[in-house]
């Protein structure tokens, strides 16, 4: 059931991950690997451990045991500051609900990760606007999140996740709150944008139509993972 040793050239790999929250076992020997430019769907029923796997891979939650290597480096050997820096500059995140800052305009939201990294406001907003054009929401630049639709807000969130040029994009149910048509468009734009920058996408979803935008899928069941491409 567990994934075998990671293939050569992987950007992010995990082996034998274990994580428990009190008596509840979330991960029980899970493995994972992804190459640059690859879109991998992480599928499984609710409570199977797929979101915990994503949080561990992204360095948000430390596993109890097991190995996670990013660009050849063991993440457990990094200190908090290094992991934070990694999340700010190398990783991008999109969640089910865009989690945009309601007080900021859309362009300010998209520019926020660059501003946190020290980029000037002018430069950050120029780059942000470029990404908003790619995600077809540049006309919303001056609006606040409360003034845009769910689908538009999610595209703004995708633009924000890509603005720093991340090498890995973590997307946790990115279309979960959208209707079919909006969800589809978000997936098209998200995967097109990621592929054009050679970013790897870890796509957690329970929806087959969303997973169909991936190159391959990993199934998580009872905290264990199965790489379907390498299993057949």
């Amino acid at each position: 059931m567990n994934a075998p040793a990671a293939p050569a050239g992987s950007l992010l790999t995990a082996e034998d991950l274990r994580k428990a929250y009190g008596p509840t076992v979330a991960l029980d020997g899970a493995g994972f690997s992804i190459h640059p430019g690859e879109v991998v769907a992480v599928m499984g029923p609710s409570g199977s451990g797929k979101s915990t796997l994503l949080h561990c891979l992204a360095g948000i939650v430390p596993p109890d045991s097991g190995s996670i290597r990013y660009a050849g480096r063991e993440m457990a050997t990094m200190n908090d500051a290094e992991r934070s820096s990694l999340r700010r500059s190398e990783f991008g995140f999109v969640f089910q609900f865009g989690q945009l800052v309601p007080e900021l305009t859309c362009v300010e939201n998209v520019a926020l990760p660059l501003r946190l990294n020290g980029t000037s406001r002018k430069e950050a907003e120029k780059t942000a606007l470029g990404w908003m054009q790619r995600l077809e929401v540049d006309d919303l630049a001056k609006k606040r999140p409360g003034e845009v639709s769910g689908g538009q807000g999610q595209r703004v969130a995708v633009a924000r996740s890509l603005v720093t040029g991340p090498r890995v994009l973590f997307a946790d149910e990115p279309t979960g709150a959208l209707d079919s048509l909006n969800g589809e468009r978000v997936m098209e734009l998200l995967t097109d944008a990621a592929r054009s920058t050679n970013a790897a996408v870890v796509l957690v979803t329970h929806e087959a139509r969303v997973a169909a935008y991936s190159d391959r899928e990993i199934v998580v069941r009872d905290g264990r993972s199965r790489d379907m491409e390498r299993a057949v």
């Binding site: 087959a208 997973a211 069941r221 379907m228 299993a231 057949v232």
Partner: peptide, 20 residues
Amino acid sequence: AGDILDNQRSEHLRSMRILT
């Protein structure tokens, strides 16, 4: 039986990727 369902899911997704 879980393996059978996993393999079938994978086969279906293969078709869905082509269609997508």
